[in-house]
């Protein structure tokens, strides 16, 4: 109900608006993903009392440009015995699904292009590219589909490290996906909707109405599963250098390798936005701080948390991940859902 009234107040979303939004997401998120690699190197370096990149541009900021030039101009090698079609398609799957997932989450505030702009003047650009009413399900499903990238890449490249990487992808996928779903189920029950806008509305009552206070367990579980979903450090089994060289990405070079990483960073941003919208009050105004600044701050915090954890914690073995997900997190998630249900009924 609320959703329809909300959309009723706003200008009509046209196809042109959605197209502009899609291009914006593509351009800006790829740029942020590139910038994310810089941030990651800098933050990790500071935490280890190093300087990180310093020489290319002021504070090493142009390192991204240097890396971009390197990635684009590097020779594109397809190994002799690899299945070349699948080998070439796999990175596209990762990058594409990561961006498709971003279509379902609110990125940047909505705005209307001013009238004086020729052709496109007056077009309303929505905050969410497509506000499907199963938003969360769509995003989670898309991110899960993204795991086909590493899986196929690992199996197609005729390399033993790739095979191990692919096997680990399957293990990881089977483990965390249950936890993601079950941990999100409890907030979904509270809101009674799968649309991210409804989640945002449900937490519009200020700091105390954030779902993290009602659902702390679900928040922690979702965070853990989110780290596994984006294969960040405690669970970066897919491409852990010390064990499997580069896992599924061993044989990749140049831009195909770059696409995996743009996908990974886009996924990090998606998970950060999801966590912010579902548990931390989304893009509601916070006191005098505007909503769009709040969501940026929250996303930045989660992004930083991922780097922080990478600097601090060792990573787990595949069997430990399965043990953790199936024997510890899943029972806790189920209990959490049951308890939430009982509380709601009483």
């Amino acid at each position: 109900m609320e959703t329809t009234t909300l959309i009723g107040q706003l200008p009509e979303v046209t196809a042109a608006g959605v197209a502009i939004k899609a291009i914006l997401i593509l351009a800006i998120i790829s740029a942020i993903a590139g910038f994310g690699t810089y941030l990651e190197r800098k933050v990790l370096a500071f935490m280890q009392r190093r300087l990180g990149p310093t020489h290319v541009g002021p504070y090493g900021l142009l390192q991204i440009a240097a890396d971009g030039i390197k990635l684009f101009t590097k020779e594109d090698i397809v190994p002799q015995h690899a299945n070349s079609l699948i080998f070439k398609v796999a990175p596209v799957i990762t990058a594409a699904t990561a961006f498709i997932a971003l279509a379902g989450v609110p990125v940047f505030p909505d705005f209307t292009i001013p009238e004086f702009v020729p052709v496109l003047g007056g077009t309303f650009v929505p905050s969410i590219a497509s506000d499907v009413n199963v938003g969360i399900l769509f995003v989670i499903g898309m991110m899960a589909a993204g795991l086909y990238g590493p899986l196929l890449a690992g199996m197609a490249q005729a390399n033993k490290w790739g095979i191990i990487g692919a096997a680990r992808t399957a293990i990881q996928f089977l483990s965390y996906e249950v936890v993601t779903g079950l941990s999100l189920l409890a907030p979904i029950m509270l809101v009674g909707s799968l649309s991210l806008i409804d989640f945002n509305e449900a937490q519009s009552g200020g700091f105390t109405s954030w779902f993290i206070w009602q659902q702390p367990v679900a928040f922690v579980l979702f965070l853990i599963a989110g780290f596994a979903e984006t294969n960040r450090t405690p669970f970066d089994l897919l491409e852990h250098e010390a064990e499997v060289i580069s896992g599924y990405a061993t044989e990749y070079s140049g831009m195909r390798w770059g696409m995996f990483f743009i996908g990974e960073y886009a996924n990090m941003i998606t998970i950060s936005i999801l966590a912010a919208v579902v548990f931390l009050g989304g893009y509601n105004d916070f006191g005098f701080i505007a909503g769009w600044i709040m969501i940026l701050l929250k996303v930045a915090f989660f992004f930083f948390l991922m780097l922080w954890v990478r600097a601090a914690w060792p990573h787990v073995r595949p069997d430990q991940l399965m043990w953790l997900c199936w024997k510890v997190l899943m029972p806790i998630a189920v209990i959490n859902v049951v308890v939430t249900g009982i509380v709601m009924m009483v």
């Binding site: 933050v43 935490m47 280890q48 009392r49 190093r50 922080w308 954890v309 600097a311 601090a312 914690w313």
Partner: peptide, 12 residues
Amino acid sequence: GLGVTVREMFNA
């Protein structure tokens, strides 16, 4: 662990 890393970051 998290505390140690962030402390080192501030020290640095």
